[in-house]
Every structure is written in structure tokens, then in C-alpha cells.
Design a protein around this nucleic acid. Structure first.
Length: 131
DNA sequence: CGACTGACGCGGA
DNA sequence: ATCCGCGCCAGTC
């Protein structure tokens, strides 16, 4: 099963490495996955991915934009909203600060309030309580 | 194999 | 700041 291409797998692994309270852009993820410029392809992988260990909500657009999310923007905001880092009307607040570019664990994520998980409703909503 | 699609990125108007 | 178009790459038809 999982006829997942190596590229996709690499992307998933990268996204999994994004520390709580941090975000990475599609472009960065693509680069970290070894395919600079494949930001769009990353989006494709994300959309298709349904794994709970892949914090897709931490992947944002360039410059701190939220990104498409297939219209589930409010959902994404909810995922990141609670506290940790903040989401402005249409942009991640302090994007430069919470941006994660693959830094070798040199990013002390701002204390993240532990949250209980809820039932898995969909690939995205399940992160609503995880940040 | 070719064409279309899209959770993207960037420069220009 | 907003809108538009082109280029990008992998996935799907």
C-alpha cells in the first residue's frame, strides 16, 4: 500500500519535524525535502495527506500568509489561534519569529499549553486542539 | 506520453 | 495593499 512517492514521504517527514509553535512555508518544506521550488507540489502532498502525525496546519504560505487550505482558512486559524503564536486577519503574526527553516533544534518553541485531543473529524480539524 | 490541476511563489500593474 | 499572470513541480486523468 501507500504508493507514496519518496518525495511525498520526505515532505511528510519534514513537516513532522516542525516544532510546536513554529511554522514553515511550503517553499521551505519543499527545499528541506530536497526539491526547492516545489512548493506547489508540497501543497499537493499536504492536501492528500491524512496522517495525524503530520501537522499540516504548521505549513503556511510565503511571507506568513495562511495559504489556500481549500477554503478551510478559518479552520486553520482555529488550529493556530488558541494562543501560542498568533494569526492576524490574513497573516501569521511575528512570522519571522515563529518561522522554522529546519533549524537544528535550535528553536525553543514558546511554551505550548498542553491540550487534550478531540475526536478525529477530518485531516485538518483533528489539529484544532494540537496547534 | 500529453494535458489539466492545485493547501504555491514572485514580480509587475 | 490588491489583483493578475507566469513559472514552478508532483499527482492525477
Amino acid at each position: 500500500m501507500s504508493p507514496v512517492s519518496e518525495f511525498a514521504e520526505r515532505v511528510l517527514r519534514v513537516v513532522r519535524r516542525i516544532p510546536p509553535g513554529k511554522v514553515a512555508t511550503y517553499g521551505d518544506v519543499a527545499a528541506l525535502a530536497g526539491r526547492p521550488g516545489a512548493a506547489r507540489a508540497v501543497g499537493t502532498v499536504m492536501r492528500r495527506c491524512c496522517r495525524r502525525d503530520v501537522p499540516a496546519h504548521r505549513v503556511v504560505g510565503a511571507g506568513g500568509a495562511l495559504g489556500g487550505y481549500g477554503g478551510n482558512l478559518e479552520l486553520k486559524r482555529a488550529c493556530c489561534g488558541p494562543r501560542g503564536w498568533f494569526v492576524g486577519p490574513h497573516r501569521i503574526r511575528g512570522f519571522a519569529r515563529v518561522r522554522w527553516t529546519g533549524g537544528r533544534s535550535a528553536n525553543p518553541a514558546p511554551s505550548e499549553p498542553p491540550r487534550r485531543r478531540r475526536r478525529i473529524l477530518c485531516q485538518c480539524s483533528l489539529f484544532a486542539a494540537l496547534v
